[in-house]
Amino acid sequence: MSKVLLVVGHPDLSQSTANSALVDAVRDLANVTVHDLYATYPDFKIDVAAEKALLAEHDVIVFQHPVYWYNTTPLLKQWQDQVFTLGWAFTMDGSPSQLAGKKAIVAVTAGVPAEYYTPEGQNGTTLEALLSNWGATLRLCQFDIQPMITLYGTAFGLSEEDLSMAAKEYHELLASFAA
């Protein structure tokens, strides 16, 4: 049975409709650990050893965050900078890292509808292209990268029904990895 770590990088989960709905949908799953970075580190002082230990004891790592200026949130970025270190999270000589082979999923919410994230849309490109740094980071760390999960329109246009369906699908996906 795989253990899933959900690393949540939302600055105020209690004020989020979409991110909190996704987290709430999986909170009760056996073998899923919900790790809210902003609740754990309100002072931004990350316990790197504790974070590495958490990663080491899980088989599947899910990185969930809202899109902030076409990127991740500040604390999640700081977490990456401090936890994904040379010799532990990645190597330069091709030897296996401590994260090698673990499954990784990036799950993001975007305030605007999906059509904004097309070559013809307001952003002029896809969300996947804008967040390509995730793919590069996860490849460097030798993760087994799974498809990105995207939930669009969270600030504009996401219906209760769409949110409920997204939460249900998220639950099913994480349950499938934890089985």
Rank of each mutant, 00 (worst) to 15 (best):
M1A: 13
M1E: 04
M1L: 11
S2C: 03
S2R: 13
K3W: 05
K3R: 15
V4G: 09
L5Q: 03
L5Y: 07
L5G: 04
V7S: 05
V8F: 06
G9P: 10
H10N: 13
P11V: 09
P11T: 10
S14H: 07
A18W: 00
S20D: 10
V23L: 08
D24E: 14
A25P: 02
A25F: 06
R27N: 14
R27L: 11
D28F: 05
D28N: 12
A30G: 13
N31E: 13
N31I: 05
N31K: 15
V34P: 05
V34S: 08
H35R: 15
D36A: 00
T40A: 15
T40W: 05
D43S: 08
I46F: 03
I46Y: 01
I46L: 02
D47N: 15
V48Q: 12
A49C: 12
A50D: 02
E51V: 00
K52F: 10
A53D: 13
L54M: 06
L55W: 01
L55S: 05
L55F: 10
A56W: 01
E57Y: 00
H58A: 08
V60Q: 04
I61Y: 09
F63R: 02
Q64E: 13
P66A: 04
Y70L: 13
N71T: 12
P74A: 15
L76N: 08
Q80R: 02
D81E: 14
Q82I: 01
V83L: 00
F84D: 04
F84R: 00
G87C: 05
G87Q: 01
W88M: 05
T91L: 03
T91E: 08
M92Y: 01
D93H: 00
D93S: 09
P96N: 11
G101V: 03
G101C: 03
I105M: 09
I105R: 08
V106N: 03
A110F: 10
A114I: 05
A114G: 06
E115N: 15
Y116W: 14
Y116K: 04
Y116Q: 06
Y117A: 07
T118S: 13
P119A: 04
P119W: 03
G121P: 06
Q122T: 08
Q122A: 12
G124H: 09
L127E: 01
A129W: 04
L130W: 06
L131K: 04
N133F: 15
G135V: 11
A136K: 05
A136Y: 08
A136F: 06
T137P: 06
L138G: 11
L140C: 01
L140Q: 13
C141E: 11
C141M: 06
F143S: 08
Q146A: 14
M148C: 01
I149N: 06
T150S: 15
T150A: 15
L151Y: 00
F156N: 11
G157K: 09
L158G: 02
L158P: 06
L163F: 02
A167M: 10
E169T: 08
E169Q: 14
Y170C: 02
H171I: 07
E172K: 07
E172T: 11
L173W: 01
L173K: 12
L174T: 14
A175S: 14
S176L: 10
F177P: 10
F177V: 08
A178Q: 09
A179Q: 15
A179M: 11
